[in-house]
């Protein structure tokens, strides 16, 4: 679906590449986690996977970058928006500011796609339910908390029903319940609709529980790739500044085992 082959990217006016010969192949219906310390290139990779690099940020690129077999540079952002959704870290900047209510805010993207009213209403109700904010539907998007704004931003993109959903640290402002709601909704979308989800995140426990595959970045390079168990339990994660899940930490202190658990379930089994 999305393929990067030895893909490098330089932001305009910079000498140091933000992504350095990254090769990554993402198939339909995968749930992929991206981990890395601050400045590792997670956001840039998210922008590349959603087409904002090179369409929005000019800069220089090298290598191959394709979406459904077509060169990403040859595609138009307006057309891509219906197929690839991007959610950012800062919820405030994602509120369009052009609508009075949360319901209308979610409709903004659907109106731009030219959908009929009945379909819009159905999609809005579904998106509100998916991120559990039905009670906010008639509120102003500016009168809610940061966490609620982030759920609105996610719902706004979910309602557009993209084939690929890229999320750059979407749960940074969410409490544990909110984080669980978002991960559960994303997991449901992957299993029921075969949507591809790509998620950059520091909350490793959630990635370990929900992702099919984890990609680790460091200094713009792809450093590790594989199952959450294989990647997140490795020593390399400590060197990259990614850290480990709390379950791995606990097991590392309590057990003498090479294969550290990364999820609660695995930790429970290991500690028995």
């Amino acid at each position: 679906m999305i393929e990067l082959k030895k893909f490098s990217y330089w932001y305009p006016g910079t000498e140091q590449s933000a992504l350095d010969r990254v090769s990554l192949s993402i198939a339909e219906g995968e749930f992929i986690g991206i981990v890395g310390a601050n400045g590792a290139g997670k956001s840039t990779l998210c922008y590349a996977l959603s087409g904002f690099v090179p369409h929005f940020y000019n800069g220089e690129t090298e290598g191959q970058h394709t979406f459904n077999g077509q060169d990403m540079a040859s595609l138009d952002l307006g057309q891509l928006a219906g197929q690839v959704g991007l959610v950012f870290q800062n919820p405030f900047n994602q509120i369009s500011g052009a609508r009075f209510t949360v319901r209308e805010e979610i409709a903004f993207g659907l109106e731009n796609l030219g959908l009929p009213q009945n379909e819009m209403r159905a999609r809005i109700d579904e998106a509100l339910e998916l991120v559990n904010i039905q009670d906010l539907a008639e509120r102003s998007p500016f009168s809610v908390s940061g966490g609620q704004q982030q759920r609105i931003a996610i719902a706004s993109i979910l309602a557009m029903q993209p084939r690929v959903l890229v999320l750059d640290e979407p749960t940074s402002q969410l409490d544990p319940d909110g984080t669980r709601d978002v991960f559960t909704a994303l997991s449901k979308l992957v299993s029921t609709r075969k949507i591809t989800v790509i998620l950059a995140e520091h909350k490793l426990e959630w990635l370990a529980t929900f992702c099919d595959r984890v990609v680790a970045l460091g200094g713009g390079k792809l450093r590790a790739e594989g199952s959450p168990q294989a990647v997140l339990s490795s020593e390399q994660m400590l060197r990259l500044g990614v850290g480990r899940t709390q379950y791995s930490e606990a097991a590392a202190r309590l057990l003498r085992t090479k294969q550290l658990p990364v999820t609660l379930e695995q930790a429970r089994k290991a500690l028995k």
Partner: peptide, 26 residues
């Protein structure tokens, strides 16, 4: 600095989509 992210968010919401825009409310 926010302008850039805001513009990206708008693009992510299909603001420059070639489709004819519709409205939720009549």
């Amino acid at each position: 600095m926010d302008v850039s992210e805001r513009a990206m968010a708008l693009e992510a919401r299909a603001f420059s989509s070639p489709a004819r825009k519709t409205s939720l409310n009549t």
